[in-house]
């Protein structure tokens, strides 16, 4: 059913001339917005630009704001986590350069998303929630370095899956999609680094990429973060069967998305008042 709908969407030649025009003009309008977006500092897009996007633009804009506010919530969580850790002194001196860089990126993502939501899409950026990084007293990330690293890995791997899960929901805006993809790969770089660091420290035996759906030595509470990562089938084809490459390696070669509900279920553990 979805595929039939998809076909109708991407094949305007199956519809009336009017629909075809609308399809291309709408797509083109977003594309121009996208090109424009790349050149601007993202501070000052006139409202008129958005108003000039024809047809369903307003609904799409509301939807984009919703997705970006969801992303902003996660970026708030990550930024606050790293800032508190850097302030606490829990991070070993030699590794601070890594987490300062990650913190800088998360703060930049917070500011960037606030800017896009508030000054480009003319929405209201969500306020930073109150976080409880002990998850109700279960973790001590700011006094135990191994715990800090474990949760950092959990947040980064979750972030990668969260952005991936939203790509299709922002694709009508080239500028928002491209920005989301450009954040997504940065989160993946963070995840790779933190995962390998944990292994170097002897806390785990994992690689920069996710093998099967393994949580490694992380607490069982993180199972939801890796559930589904063992998938071998893409576009209907089992790539391990296709290639003869072992399932572990094929599972590593593709990261899987999570839905907003799944991610908020995970992040909810760290929201104050939910425990």
């Amino acid at each position: 059913m979805n595929l039939i709908k998809l076909l109708d969407t991407i094949c305007p030649d199956t519809k009336s001339a009017e629909d075809k025009d609308r399809f291309f003009s709408r797509r083109e309008a977003f594309r121009q917005f996208g090109d424009f977006g790349k050149k601007m500092a993202l501070a000052a897009v006139p409202l008129a630009v958005l108003n000039s996007i024809p047809h369903v633009a307003k609904a799409d804009t509301a939807s984009l704001i919703g997705v970006l506010n969801y992303a902003l919530t996660l970026e708030h969580l990550e930024y606050r986590y790293y800032q508190l850790a850097l302030d606490s002194g829990v991070i070993e001196a030699a590794d601070r350069v890594i987490f300062q860089k990650i913190r800088d990126h998360e703060l930049a993502h917070v500011r960037f998303l606030q800017e896009v939501i508030g000054n480009v899409l003319m929405g209201t950026p969500v306020a930073e929630p109150k976080f409880d990084f002990t998850a109700g007293g279960n973790f001590s990330p700011f006094t135990s370095y191994p715990t800090f690293l474990a949760l950092a890995q959990a947040f980064e791997d979750t972030g990668v899956r969260a952005y991936k899960g939203q790509a299709a929901n922002v694709k009508e805006s080239d500028v928002v999609l491209t920005a989301a993809l450009s954040i997504h790969s940065v989160e993946a770089r963070h995840a790779s680094q933190v995962r390998r660091l944990r292994t170097k420290k002897g806390q785990d035996a994992i690689k920069g990429w996710i093998t099967n759906g393994s949580i490694g030595s992380l607490p069982a509470a993180t199972m939801a973060i890796y559930a589904g990562e063992e998938n071998l089938t893409h576009g209907g084809v089992n790539v391990s069967s296709l290639t003869g490459i072992d399932a572990a390696a094929v599972s590593e070669g593709w990261d899987e998305p999570l839905s907003r509900e799944q991610v908020l279920g995970i992040a909810g553990l760290f929201l104050a008042g939910s425990n």
Binding site: L6, I10, R31, G34, V160, Y163, K164, A167, A168, K171, D174, L177, T178, L181, H184, S185, V186, E187, A188, R189, H190, A191, S192, Q193, G208, W209, H234, G235, E252, G253, W254, D255, E256, P257
Partner: peptide, 24 residues
């Protein structure tokens, strides 16, 4: 941004984050 199909966009997204893990 040039992919019309959401299915292909997702597949590309599944691969690009692994490339980023490699790069790091």
């Amino acid at each position: 941004q040039f992919l019309e199909s959401s299915d292909f966009l997702l597949i590309a997204g599944k691969i690009v984050s692994v490339e980023a893990r490699h790069a790091a």
